[in-house]
Measured scan of single mutants.
Amino acid sequence: AIERGSKVKILRKESYWYGDVGTVASIDKSGIIYPVIVRFNKVNYNGFSGSAGGLNTNNFAEHELEVV
């Protein structure tokens, strides 16, 4: 089962992080479509409006993740 702290591989082909491994930061139990927040070591794009980097978290559905 996917739980907080799990290392997961991203299976969503259109994702910037496809094939990468991230760490589960949290799981939303409220029934939303993409409840699993995954944190990565790298950012997906340069930040804007003065922020240092881009996003390094993204929401995924459990079926888009594979525990490694």
Rank of each mutant, 00 (worst) to 15 (best):
A1G: 13
A1V: 13
A1M: 13
A1L: 12
I2F: 08
I2H: 03
I2N: 01
I2V: 07
E3I: 12
E3Q: 13
E3A: 12
E3G: 11
R4Q: 13
R4W: 08
G5Y: 04
S6V: 14
S6I: 08
S6Q: 10
S6K: 06
S6G: 04
K7R: 10
K7T: 10
K7H: 13
K7F: 12
K7N: 07
K7M: 12
V8T: 02
V8F: 03
V8E: 00
V8N: 01
V8D: 02
V8K: 01
V8R: 02
V8I: 01
V8P: 02
V8Q: 01
K9V: 08
K9F: 05
I10S: 01
I10P: 02
I10N: 02
I10K: 00
I10Q: 02
L11E: 02
L11F: 02
L11R: 03
L11T: 04
L11G: 03
L11V: 04
L11C: 09
R12F: 04
R12K: 06
R12A: 05
R12V: 04
R12W: 02
R12C: 08
R12Q: 04
K13F: 09
K13N: 06
K13L: 10
E14P: 04
E14V: 05
E14A: 09
E14Q: 11
E14W: 07
E14F: 06
S15Q: 01
S15F: 02
S15N: 04
S15K: 00
S15T: 02
Y16N: 05
Y16H: 06
Y16C: 07
Y16A: 06
Y16F: 15
W17F: 06
W17R: 03
W17S: 00
W17N: 03
W17C: 04
Y18P: 00
Y18I: 03
Y18W: 06
Y18H: 04
Y18D: 00
Y18A: 03
G19K: 05
G19Y: 04
G19I: 06
D20R: 08
D20Y: 10
D20G: 06
D20I: 11
V21E: 05
V21L: 07
V21R: 02
V21F: 07
G22D: 01
G22H: 02
G22F: 04
G22I: 07
G22N: 02
G22Q: 01
G22S: 03
T23D: 04
T23M: 07
T23Y: 08
T23F: 07
T23V: 13
T23P: 02
T23R: 04
V24A: 01
V24Y: 01
V24R: 00
V24F: 03
V24D: 00
V24H: 01
V24I: 03
V24N: 00
A25L: 15
A25G: 04
S26P: 00
S26A: 13
S26I: 06
S26E: 14
I27P: 02
I27F: 07
I27R: 02
I27T: 03
I27E: 01
I27Y: 08
D28T: 04
D28N: 07
D28V: 07
K29C: 13
K29G: 10
K29A: 07
K29M: 11
K29V: 10
K29W: 09
K29S: 12
K29R: 13
S30V: 05
S30Q: 06
G31D: 15
G31P: 05
G31S: 12
G31F: 12
I32T: 14
I33W: 06
I33N: 12
I33T: 10
I33H: 11
I33S: 14
I33R: 13
Y34Q: 05
Y34D: 07
Y34K: 07
Y34W: 09
Y34N: 11
P35Q: 11
P35Y: 09
P35I: 11
P35S: 11
P35R: 10
P35D: 09
P35T: 07
P35K: 13
V36W: 04
V36S: 00
V36M: 02
V36G: 00
V36C: 03
I37S: 09
I37R: 11
I37D: 02
I37N: 08
V38M: 00
V38G: 00
V38Y: 00
R39C: 14
R39F: 12
R39K: 14
R39S: 10
R39P: 00
R39L: 12
R39T: 13
F40I: 03
F40D: 01
F40M: 02
F40P: 02
F40H: 02
F40L: 03
F40E: 01
F40T: 01
N41D: 14
N41W: 08
N41S: 11
N41V: 11
K42I: 06
K42P: 06
K42V: 09
K42C: 15
K42G: 08
V43C: 15
V43T: 11
V43S: 10
V43A: 09
V43L: 09
V43Q: 08
V43K: 10
N44K: 14
N44E: 13
N44C: 15
N44Y: 15
N44I: 12
Y45K: 15
Y45W: 08
Y45M: 15
Y45P: 15
Y45V: 15
Y45L: 15
Y45C: 15
N46I: 09
N46V: 09
N46C: 15
N46D: 14
N46P: 15
G47K: 07
G47Q: 09
F48C: 15
F48N: 14
F48M: 13
F48P: 15
F48K: 05
F48D: 15
S49A: 12
S49I: 12
S49D: 15
S49Y: 13
S49T: 12
G50F: 07
G50K: 03
S51F: 09
S51I: 14
S51Y: 07
S51M: 11
S51P: 12
A52E: 14
A52T: 13
A52D: 14
G53A: 11
G53T: 13
G54E: 09
G54D: 07
L55Y: 11
L55G: 09
L55K: 10
N56P: 09
N56G: 06
N56I: 08
N56E: 08
N56L: 09
N56F: 10
T57P: 05
T57N: 06
T57F: 13
T57V: 10
T57I: 10
N58Q: 15
N58R: 06
N58W: 14
N58H: 15
N58C: 15
N58D: 15
N58M: 14
N58V: 12
N59E: 07
N59Y: 13
F60Y: 06
F60S: 02
F60G: 00
F60K: 01
F60H: 00
A61L: 04
A61N: 06
A61R: 03
A61G: 07
A61Q: 06
A61H: 05
E62S: 07
H63D: 10
H63A: 07
H63S: 11
H63W: 13
H63R: 06
E64N: 01
E64Q: 02
L65A: 00
L65T: 01
L65E: 00
L65P: 00
L65K: 01
L65D: 01
E66V: 08
E66H: 05
E66M: 10
E66T: 06
E66I: 08
V67R: 05
V67A: 05
V67S: 04
V67L: 12
V67W: 05
V68W: 08
V68M: 09
V68H: 02
V68R: 03
V68E: 03
V68F: 06
V68G: 01
